[in-house]
């Protein structure tokens, strides 16, 4: 009897592995597992055995039945999933049309936002001011009275019929507006669009973007200015960034400095971008001139502070390797879509 069950199991296994489609599988089921199938026959045969024999054969008969049913279910499910695969196969590598398009933020905005986040985290307000500015705020209040030679340093767009109005040449007028509005102490930045009347080429743009910073309180020192400028440089360009300050004349600060960073492109070795000096001019700044504090309504005997700036356009060009400043305002989607 044992042998019969073994033989049946073997025959079943052979038939099952040969069954490659649904119909054959069904005939295997009928032949072996059906109500009148071969397993049922053998099981019926058990009735004719003696009590002892039945007890001896019974468990292994049941085991064989369970194993056959299980094997069949497995084969059936395999066949089903193979069929689904064949019927419903798709090329998952193919693109989906229309592809979901993604938008793009202008590179200068990206840099500006990165810097705004840094300064906000340090407690700076982010402020704004008019781009078409009065001569007073753009020059006079910044210690550049009419006839001041420093006005020549900044080729200025003037407004027809309004000699007292200019397209602002710098974001610095926001300093004065902010001091007047918020008083001291103050920590602020003012990012924005500026204008200089110069012919455009790959390195010069008459429209460009700056970010201006101002910190005023009692006891703010040159050393603090250096500390903040360095913190910003490190945040932007990494922990190995070095800052060096050199004297530079700006009428609205005294002392005035220009800050240079070791060139991150060549790590100070000297390259085309840093003109082989290993240093990049990146941050002008200085201690706010007493006359500027006065124009802002603050007492220079009580308060002192520093201001600094970055060229956002320049930083964006450096960071993304943009080699032509005219691209910024080109509106060319082939450029804009890279950011």
């Amino acid at each position: 009897m044992h042998q019969k069950f073994d033989e049946l199991k073997k025959a079943f296994d052979a038939a099952l592995s040969a069954a490659q489609d649904k119909d054959i599988l069904e005939s295997v089921r009928t032949e072996f597992l059906g109500r009148k199938g071969r397993l049922a026959d053998l099981m019926t045969g058990l009735k004719d055995l003696s009590e002892d024999e039945r007890r001896a054969v019974g468990p292994s008969a049941n085991e064989a039945k369970r194993a056959m049913e299980e094997a069949f279910a497995r084969a059936e499910s395999e066949l089903r999933s193979r069929a689904v695969r064949e019927e419903e196969w798709i090329d998952v590598t193919a693109p989906v049309f229309p592809e979901e398009s993604i938008g793009h933020i202008h590179p200068v905005t990206l840099i500006q936002q990165k810097l705004e986040d840094l300064f906000i985290s340090m407690g700076f307000m982010v402020l704004d001011g008019p781009e078409l500015e009065s001569d007073y705020y753009n020059f006079t209040a910044l210690n550049m009275p009419p006839d001041h030679p420093a006005r020549d340093m900044q080729d200025t767009f003037y407004i027809k019929g309004h000699p007292d109005q200019v397209m602002r040449t710098q974001t610095s007028p926001v300093q004065i507006r902010a001091m007047r509005k918020y008083g001291a102490p103050i920590r602020m930045i003012a990012p924005g669009r500026c204008f200089r009347n110069e012919a455009t080429d790959a390195r010069h743009e008459h429209t460009f973007y700056q970010l201006e910073g101002l910190v005023i309180d009692k006891g703010i020192t040159f050393s603090h200015m250096k500390g903040v400028m360095e913190a910003v440089a490190v945040h932007l360009f990494g922990p190995d960034t070095k800052l060096r300050l050199m004297p530079k004349f700006y009428p609205f600060v005294e002392p005035g400095v220009r800050g240079e960073l070791n060139c991150f492109l060549c790590a100070g070795e000297g390259c085309r971008v840093c003109k082989n000096t290993g240093w990049l001019e990146a941050m002008p700044g200085g201690m706010v001139h007493p006359r500027v504090l006065e124009a802002g309504g603050l007492d220079p005997n009580t308060y002192q502070g520093f201001a600094f700036g970055f060229g956002l356009s320049r930083l964006a060009m450096l960071k993304y390797g943009i080699d032509d400043s005219r691209l910024m305002q080109s509106g060319d989607v082939r450029f804009l879509a890279q950011f």
Binding site: P185, H224, V228, L243, P247
Partner: peptide
């Protein structure tokens, strides 16, 4: 200027 140490203001 390189001999002036950088420090951060307390505010």
């Amino acid at each position: 200027y390189e001999r002036i140490p950088p420090t951060l203001p307390r505010m």
